[in-house]
């Protein structure tokens, strides 16, 4: 009977117990309650405010602001930067994670890279932008890269600096879970290394890889201090415009514009997540 209770379908088990069986979802209540208070409530406040004018009356006409070509430009800029840095970060991070995972699990290299990744994944802001400026900016110590101030590429490189370690940390457990028997089995059946990765290893790791890439995308989307320190004069991406709207002294209505831009970002991630869910469903289809 106990085995039946863990069946994958999630159907309510018939328990022969003294206690009255509570529905299974009750176990998630502490988590959901916490998230509701500290995440959904503030988000709700922001969403509601984005649809109001400064006097507190409803103003759905705010939404038309999103159709403004200038505003659309910020969203396109954000999308480009996030796509570039998440794809490069995910691919490079996966390669590095594989190199780490194939070594001694108690080795020094692994420890150093893990601890370093933990620190660097959260490293950003003014100091990171300045470190790159000192290294390879127009008057840098090592290079004088002319493309340093080029929009998607220069800042994309800086973003990659914190995206790769993040990918390593979230992808490493998945690679650790790849069993060596799978490789041996495919070799016994005469598969080449390429065939192994194409038909066995790759598909197995794909869901975790896509999940990591999605995390990197969202991570790049909300990063603000780094790009602001890289180039504070020109706004390229949405968060910069949000900060401008929040601090602008030209018109009071701008606070609502900031809320609205944030809403636009949530919508953008929702669209990306929908695409991710489709890919994920395809990728995870035969894993069950």
């Amino acid at each position: 009977m106990a085995v039946a209770a863990t069946s994958e379908t999630g159907a309510r088990p018939s328990r022969a117990g003294r206690r009255v069986a509570a529905p299974a979802w009750v176990g998630t209540v502490p988590f959901l309650a916490y998230v509701a208070i500290f995440l959904l409530l503030p988000t709700g406040i922001v969403v509601v405010d984005s649809l109001k004018n400064p006097n507190g009356a409803w103003a759905f006409s705010n939404v038309t602001e999103l159709g403004n070509p200038l505003v659309r430009g910020y969203f396109i800029g954000s999308f480009k930067l996030c796509l570039l840095s998440s794809v490069s970060g995910a691919v490079l991070g996966a390669i590095l994670a594989y190199a780490i995972a194939s070594g001694n699990p108690d080795g020094v290299v692994r420890r150093l890279y893990l601890a370093g990744s933990g620190v660097l994944a959260q490293f950003g802001g003014i100091t990171l932008a300045f470190a790159f400026l000192v290294l390879l900016g127009p008057v840098g110590l090592l290079f004088h890269a002319s493309w340093y101030y080029n929009f998607p590429w220069g800042i994309g490189l800086i973003y990659t600096y914190f995206q790769v370690p993040l990918m390593v940390l979230v992808f490493l457990p998945a690679i650790d879970g790849v069993k060596v028997q799978w490789r041996e089995a495919s070799e016994n059946l005469g598969a080449s290394a390429w065939q192994y990765w194409r038909y066995v290893g790759g598909p197995l790791l794909m869901p975790a890889f896509l999940g990591g890439a999605l995390l990197l995308f969202a991570n790049a989307l909300s990063a603000f201090a780094t790009i602001q320190a890289w180039e504070s004069q020109i706004a390229y991406i949405v968060p910069q415009q949000i900060a401008t709207a929040l601090s602008s002294e030209v018109g009071l209505s701008n606070v609502n514009v900031a809320d609205l831009l944030a809403l636009g970002m949530v919508v953008m991630v929702a669209i990306v997540m929908a695409g991710y869910a489709l890919l994920q469903r395809r990728a995870a289809r035969w894993l069950r």
Partner: peptide, 16 residues
């Protein structure tokens, strides 16, 4: 729910 915090810039979350 777990990814949501990343999509809302800290600067906006503070407002809420």
């Amino acid at each position: 729910l777990c990814l949501l915090p990343l999509t809302i810039p800290a600067i906006v979350l503070v407002v809420g």
